[in-house]
């Protein structure tokens, strides 16, 4: 049986309270969300309440008009057979091992420790190479998107053809950019090529221990609100 929400129907426009049939039932009737028994009750009620019957007719007309009004635009969207490349690029962006923010914070903390612990001379020696490192890392982070998008295009990837057998086809296609393409990258300049592999690793390592503690610090606030409620 349909449960009526009495809190929401305090408005004076709700004149259908009789017989336990309320505004909510009329809407649910129009939208087809009532079970058979309740639907019969509402229909019985409507035969005796021309006002409510007119209201229902208008709501039904509205539903039709809205579907009709959006039909053309939505059909045009459904008919699109290609996915804009930038959507695929967004999905194919390699998964960060952990957030960039955490990596930077960890690297920064590491540098501070090194500077503080080693004294003036040690700090000077320790900082010089790592500054270098940071620069190159920055360079890398700038150039990375280009090389990735250059590699990522998946011309045959297409979520539209619904037939399920297509799926195995593009499974490897999605995996590729993240894992296998690194060797064949069209690298813009030779400076990075040697450095790339070496440079990426030192960043994650120092923070390896911090990884579990704060998995996604930058977004934790909004993340939590979602966590509470994302249970459907």
């Amino acid at each position: 049986m349909y449960k009526k929400d009495s809190d929401t129907d305090k408005s004076p426009s709700n004149i259908h309270i009789f017989d336990g049939i309320g505004e909510a039932d009329l809407h649910a009737y129009v939208d087809g969300h009532l079970d058979t028994a309740r639907r019969k009750e509402v229909e019985y009620y409507l035969r005796r309440n021309p006002d409510a019957a007119a209201q229902i007719r208008d709501y039904a007309t509205l539903n039709t008009l809205l579907r009709e009004g959006f039909a053309e635009e939505l059909a045009a969207i459904d008919a699109q057979e290609t996915v804009p490349p930038r959507f695929l690029a967004a999905l194919n962006r390699p998964q960060p091992r952990f957030p960039v923010f955490a990596a930077r914070a960890a690297a920064f903390a590491f540098l501070c420790l090194a500077a503080a612990g080693g004294g003036w001379m040690a700090a000077k020696h320790g900082a010089a190479p790592s500054e270098n490192q940071l620069q190159e890392a920055a360079l890398h982070s700038v150039s990375a998107p280009e090389t990735e998008t250059a590699v990522a295009p998946l011309p045959d990837f297409n979520p539209y053809p619904v037939p399920v057998p297509v799926v195995p086809d593009y499974v490897p296609a999605i995996q590729q950019p993240a894992v296998q393409t690194a060797p064949s990258l069209p690298v813009p300049s030779t400076e990075y090529q040697g450095g790339e592999a070496d440079i990426i690793r030192p960043l994650p390592d120092p923070a390896g221990t911090a990884h579990d503690a704060d998995a996604m610090p930058p977004a934790s606030q909004s993340g939590q609100t979602e966590t509470e409620t994302l249970s459907f």
């Binding site: 939505l74 969207i77 459904d78 996915v83 999905l91 979520p159 593009y170 999605i174």
Partner: peptide, 13 residues
């Protein structure tokens, strides 16, 4: 990622 990619048309709607 694949599951999300399949929903792109629905998201555009």
């Amino acid at each position: 990622r694949q599951m999300i990619a399949r929903e792109i048309p629905a998201l555009r709607r």
